[in-house]
């Protein structure tokens, strides 16, 4: 009985079987086959009694070495197989990363809100706060306190919707100027966004209900050049720094001097196109130095205080900025429109 020969055969078989192995679970079988309690190595040990005593240490040593070797082989192959298995799993788990993601369904802000957020940020950055006022106004706040007496042609500038003899729907956000001056002491620095109402038929460029943003600054030493600088900043922030801007004399009963503000046309840049009626300019807001009569009526001494005010068509800003050609679109709330912003 040549146990050494047996060991050699075991070694050869084990090496071959282990390296050819490709399933991890078979590895355990081989471990049992070679190293188990009834395994082939153990069987060699079991037969030790039957060989020459002087051979025993030799065979014993060889068997132990082989046992160790097979253990190592098993471990090596286990690692190999585990790696292969992991790799196979990763390959199997491949996904098509070009499939669309699971998008959270966030709601959209209306474009008027997008604009006002932008404007509010600019103005709060300059120290302005946001003022509000009622949409139903009295004659006093909408007209008289703004230096628009009854029976003055300036009343023709705005077609008013009345509720009764006392109350009307504010035709502009300017009454907020008066409320603010009555409630606060200078310095005043506010913008007042809100809904306004006019007796205008609904068409592509008019709406009986629309939005304005009023601005008012009152303090000592407020100048017309401050007005210009403030408006320039907001125009540049909204329409870009390359926009040209011009101020031209105009008339609002509650400001003096009064100025209309134009920006170079956002479509043609000043060449003249249908948007700007070939003038190259777009009218974007009215402004001026607060009229002394208005200051006086609100209890401010015009010899001490001065201020400027402006009023912007909020809808118009949105139309211009986003290239919308019909104001009605803003109030139709078509989902496909809302989802463009």
């Amino acid at each position: 009985m040549d146990l050494l020969k047996t060991l050699e055969n075991i070694e050869k078989d084990a090496e071959q079987e282990l390296t050819e192995l490709d399933e991890l679970k078979e590895l355990e079988e081989l471990r049992v086959k070679y190293l188990g309690k009834k395994g082939e190595i153990q069987q060699v040990f079991n037969k030790m009694g039957k060989i020459e005593p002087e051979q025993r240490p030799v065979v014993g040593k060889s068997a132990n070495i082989l046992k160790q070797k097979i253990e190592n082989l098993i471990n090596e192959n286990q690692q190999r197989l585990e790696k292969a298995k992991e790799k196979k799993r990763l390959v199997a788990e491949k996904i098509d990363v070009t499939l669309p993601g699971n998008k959270p369904k966030l709601g959209r802000a209306h474009p008027l809100k997008v604009i006002i957020d932008e404007i509010t940020e600019i103005f709060t950055g300059m120290g302005f706060s946001i003022a509000e006022g009622p949409e139903v106004e009295s004659e006093y706040y909408n007209f008289a306190a703004l230096n628009i007496p009854e029976h003055h042609p300036a009343r023709d500038l705005q077609d008013t919707l009345y509720l009764d003899d006392h109350y009307l729907l504010r035709t502009h956000t300017s009454p907020v100027q008066i409320h603010t001056m009555e409630e606060q002491d200078p310095p005043i620095r506010i913008i007042a966004p809100g809904k306004v109402y006019r007796s205008d038929e609904l068409d592509a460029s008019h709406s009986p209900i629309f939005h304005q943003i009023e601005g008012l600054v009152v303090d000592k030493d407020i100048t017309f050049s401050d007005l210009k600088g403030t408006i320039k900043l907001i125009v540049e922030a909204l329409f870009g720094e390359n926009r040209k801007i011009r101020f031209r004399p105009s008339y609002f009963p509650f400001t003096e001097p009064s100025a209309e503000v134009d920006v170079s046309c956002i479509v043609c840049g000043g060449e003249g196109c249908s948007l700007c009626s070939r003038s190259g300019w777009l009218e974007i807001m009215g402004s001026g130095m607060v009229h002394p009569n208005v200051l006086r009526m609100s209890g401010y001494d015009p010899d001490i205080y001065s201020g400027f005010a402006f009023g912007v068509g909020w809808d118009r800003l949105a139309l211009l900025k986003y290239g919308i050609d019909d104001i009605r679109v803003l109030y139709e709330n078509d989902r496909r429109f809302l989802h463009q912003f």
Binding site: M126, G127, S129, I130, D221, F224, S225, T230, R246
Partner: peptide
């Protein structure tokens, strides 16, 4: 109007929403 310089009033307040 367009020859008048542009300046900005010095802010003495912190602007904020209420």
């Amino acid at each position: 109007y367009n020859n008048i310089p542009t300046t900005r009033p010095i802010s003495k307040q912190l602007g904020s929403k209420n």
